[in-house]
Every structure is written in structure tokens, then in C-alpha cells.
């Protein structure tokens, strides 16, 4: 074979190399060189994750289950709470260490979802309002959702280092898009005649957003948040490759040792946690009218206090 590949007009691609891979490799170098700049942010984020993990670990499991059950009772009703409690207890009995691992995973997921919400909601609102921004952001969202995680794993590790913070960043990249998409969709689906009516009564753009568009697109936004949580959970195994602890790490280690039992424990823990988070957040998406009450604070545990308070006044 000749060293020089002959140029053929029918197959121009094999002869020309414009060097994208080499150029992209430069990103790695750039990331390594800029590590220092990112350190303060990294440390802060790390503190948040560790703090959340410490709190969740410090609470006795039964107290945590009770807290989650109360939240679920408030928003999702009795039936869902039953399922939630059963799943949480099942996690506890999976393995003596499973509860601690689950809480670590939960703290990573909660942090990722919070940051995703902080970034994703404004982006979604912008995309819902502006066609141009929507066009601009769609290919980016497509990339974030479909690009294999291993591609950006390396640059993120070069930039931030291994550990929880990179895990959260990697999770955000994967989990953010549905929130942005569904927020945008929700804003776009608001009945234009209701927006027009609000305008006719003198609403300013910010009033239209807060009093009309956001409340009316809440079911869609909540569905987006639910999807974000699900995707965040599905990233925990991949994130464990960059030294994120928790259930994902358990699966990864089991895989390395071909230990099917351990893998099942880790996997089942992830599934059960997913069911818990899905059922609770799914209920946020229902409008309060579908749940048959006026306002969320008028029913459930808080409703008990609220109604007592109302009677006293």
C-alpha cells in the first residue's frame, strides 16, 4: 500500500483530513491549563453536596422515610405515599449498606436537579418567548441529550478533576434538556387569547409571565422536572466512573468483579429510588383542580394545620 492516498473525486473524504480530532484534543489541554480558575466554584459546589450528604446520612432512616412520606402525602395523596414508603423500606432491606449509598446518590441527584432547574427554567422561558433563541438552543439541547457521556467525561475531569462536582456537571449536561424543552413547550401552549386578555387589562410583560404564562404552563414544566430527575438518576452509573460514590459506584464495582449479586443490589436500589422520585414529582404536574382541592395548602398534612389556623381566626 502506498503511503499517499490518491485523491478521488468519488471518495474525497478519505484523502482529506482537516484535523478536527487534533483540534478538539486541544480542549483537553485548555481544560488542564484553566483548572485554577474553576476551583472556587468547584469547592463551593462540593461543600453543598457534602453538606446535603451529611444531613441525609445523619438522619436516622426512619425519620427520613417519615419526612419523604409527609412530602408525598402533601402533594401526591395516600395511594402514592403507600408505594413510596414500601419502596423506601425495600431499599433499606436490600443490603445493610444500601440505605447509606442511596442517600449519597440522592444528594447528588438533588443537587444536579436543583442546578438544572436554576439554569433550565430561565432558558426554557426564553426559548418559549423567542423563536430565534429556540432555534439557537435546539441543536445544543440535541447535542447534550444524544452525545455519549464518555465524550465529555474526559474534558470535564481535566477541567474539574474527579469527584462529586464533575459528577454533578456531567449529570446536568444530560438531564437539563427536557426541562428546557418542556418549559418552552408549556409557555408556547398557553392559550394566546388568555394572554391577550391579560394584556387588555393592562398586564406588563413580567405580570403576564408570572400571573398567566407560568401558572398555566406549570403542568408541562413539572413534567419536564420529572424527566430531569429520571435522567439524573440514569446518569449515576456513568458518573461513578469519575469517582462519584453511591449506588452507581456499587454497580460499577460489581461489574468489574463480575459480582452479579452486588450489581443487582445496586441496580434495584436505583430503580426503587427512581420510582419514589417519579411518583412524588409526577403529582406536581397535576393541576390542583385535578386533585379536587382548591390549593395545595388546603389539603394533606399542611391542610390539617391550615384549617385549624383558619378556625382559630
Amino acid at each position: 500500500m502506498a503511503d499517499e492516498v490518491k485523491f478521488s473525486i468519488l471518495d474525497p473524504f478519505s484523502a482529506i483530513d482537516i484535523g478536527i480530532a487534533d483540534w478538539a484534543d486541544g480542549i483537553k489541554e485548555w481544560a488542564t491549563n484553566n483548572r485554577e480558575a474553576i476551583q472556587p466554584v468547584k469547592n463551593y459546589l462540593n461543600d453543598v453536596i457534602i453538606w446535603m450528604n451529611d444531613v441525609l446520612q445523619a438522619l436516622p432512616p426512619l425519620i427520613t422515610i417519615a419526612c419523604i412520606a409527609i412530602i408525598s402525602l402533601q402533594f401526591a395523596g395516600k395511594k402514592v405515599t403507600g408505594i413510596v414508603v414500601i419502596c423506601l423500606v425495600a431499599i433499606g432491606f436490600l443490603d445493610p449498606r444500601a440505605w447509606d449509598l442511596t442517600m449519597t446518590t440522592l444528594s447528588i441527584v438533588v443537587t444536579s436537579v436543583l442546578i438544572s432547574a436554576i439554569i433550565g427554567l430561565p432558558l426554557g422561558i426564553l426559548a418559549g418567548k423567542s423563536d430565534r433563541f429556540e432555534q439557537l438552543i435546539r441543536p445544543i439541547l440535541d447535542t447534550m441529550q444524544t452525545i455519549p457521556a464518555f465524550v465529555y467525561l474526559v474534558p470535564v475531569v481535566m477541567l474539574v478533576g474527579i469527584g462529586n462536582v464533575s459528577g454533578v456537571l456531567v449529570t446536568i449536561v444530560f438531564a437539563l434538556p427536557p426541562l428546557v424543552r418542556l418549559t418552552s413547550l408549556g409557555i408556547r401552549q398557553v392559550n394566546p387569547s388568555i394572554v391577550e386578555a391579560a394584556k387588555a387589562f393592562g398586564a406588563s410583560p413580567s405580570q403576564i409571565l408570572c400571573k398567566v404564562e407560568l401558572p398555566l404552563s406549570a403542568p408541562s414544566i413539572m413534567a419536564g422536572l420529572n424527566q430531569t430527575i429520571m435522567l439524573a438518576l440514569s446518569m449515576v452509573v456513568i458518573a461513578s466512573m469519575i469517582a462519584v460514590k453511591g449506588l452507581g459506584n456499587e454497580v460499577l464495582r460489581a461489574m468489574g468483579r463480575l459480582d452479579a449479586g452486588k450489581a443487582i443490589v445496586g441496580g434495584a436500589g436505583i430503580v426503587l429510588l427512581a420510582i419514589v422520585l417519579d411518583r412524588i414529582t409526577e403529582s406536581f404536574g397535576l393541576s390542583k383542580r385535578e386533585k379536587g382541592v382548591r390549593h395545595w395548602w388546603e389539603s394533606g398534612p399542611i391542610g390539617l394545620f391550615y384549617n385549624q389556623y383558619k378556625k382559630l381566626n
Partner: peptide, 9 residues
């Protein structure tokens, strides 16, 4: 308005 356009929430 013809279609009322009341705020459903």
C-alpha cells in the same frame, strides 16, 4: 372577549 378568556387557574 368572545371566548371569555377567563384565567382558568
Amino acid at each position: 372577549f368572545q371566548n371569555m378568556a377567563l384565567l382558568p387557574h
